[in-house]
Measured scan of single mutants.
Amino acid sequence: GLPEGWEMRFTVDGIPYFVDHNRRTTTYIDPRTG
């Protein structure tokens, strides 16, 4: 799974992105792969 505090969501286009609730940021880069 994802690191603690992270969540995976999808855009309206079906593109996955990642929400970091710890820092309240979003990124398209998987936190597991950097």
Results as ranks from 00 to 15, higher is better:
R23L: 13
Y17E: 05
G14P: 00
D30E: 03
I15V: 12
F10I: 10
T11I: 01
Y17Q: 06
I15D: 06
L2H: 02
I29F: 10
D13T: 13
P3G: 05
P3L: 04
R23H: 15
F18V: 00
Y28S: 08
R24W: 13
T33E: 13
P16S: 05
T25F: 15
D13K: 12
G1T: 11
F10K: 06
T27P: 02
P31W: 00
P16R: 12
N22V: 15
T27L: 03
R9S: 07
R24L: 13
I29W: 10
L2W: 06
I15Y: 10
E7S: 11
M8F: 04
W6N: 01
P31A: 00
V19R: 05
G34V: 13
L2M: 08
G14L: 07
T11W: 02
E7P: 00
V19Q: 03
R24N: 15
D30K: 00
G34A: 14
T26H: 13
E4M: 10
G1L: 14
T11R: 08
D30P: 04
V12K: 14
D20M: 02
Y28E: 09
W6V: 07
P3N: 03
G5H: 07
I29T: 12
F18M: 00
W6R: 00
G1M: 14
I29R: 12
V12R: 14
Y28I: 06
P3K: 05
T25S: 07
Y17S: 01
F18L: 01
T27K: 04
Y17N: 01
L2A: 03
G5K: 06
T11K: 03
T33K: 11
G34M: 13
F18Y: 10
R9V: 08
M8T: 04
E4G: 10
D13N: 12
Y17W: 07
T33G: 12
N22Y: 11
G5P: 04
Y28R: 07
V19N: 01
M8L: 09
V12A: 14
V12E: 13
T26Y: 15
G1S: 13
F10S: 03
R9W: 06
G34Q: 14
M8G: 01
G34I: 13
R32T: 07
T33I: 13
P16H: 04
Y28N: 07
R32V: 06
H21N: 09
D20Q: 02
R9N: 06
R9Q: 07
Y28F: 15
E7Y: 07
D20W: 04
T27V: 06
D13I: 06
G5M: 04
I29K: 10
W6S: 03
G1D: 15
P16L: 09
P3D: 06
F18D: 00
W6I: 06
F10E: 07
E7V: 09
R32P: 06
P31E: 03
I29L: 12
V19K: 05
F10N: 04
D30Y: 00
H21A: 07
V19A: 03
G14F: 06
R24D: 15
G5I: 04
M8S: 01
T25V: 15
R9H: 09
D20N: 05
I29Y: 09
T26S: 13
T33M: 11
T11E: 04
T11Q: 07
D30H: 04
V19T: 07
W6G: 00
D30R: 00
E7R: 01
M8W: 02
V12W: 12
R23W: 09
T25Y: 15
T27D: 02
F18H: 01
T27H: 08
G14E: 05
T25G: 08
I15Q: 08
P16T: 08
D20Y: 05
P16W: 06
G14K: 08
D30L: 00
V19W: 10
G34H: 14
F10A: 05
P31G: 02
D20H: 08
T25K: 13
T33R: 07
Y28A: 07
I29D: 10
R9T: 04
T33N: 14
R24Q: 15
L2V: 03
V19H: 06
R9K: 11
Y17R: 00
T26E: 14
Y17G: 00
M8H: 02
D13A: 13
T27G: 03
Y17L: 10
T11S: 09
R24Y: 13
G34R: 07
G5Q: 06
H21S: 08
F10D: 01
R9E: 06
T26W: 15
R24E: 15
T33Y: 12
M8P: 01
D13V: 09
H21I: 11
R24H: 15
D20V: 03
R32M: 05
R23V: 08
Y28W: 15
R23M: 14
M8D: 00
P3E: 04
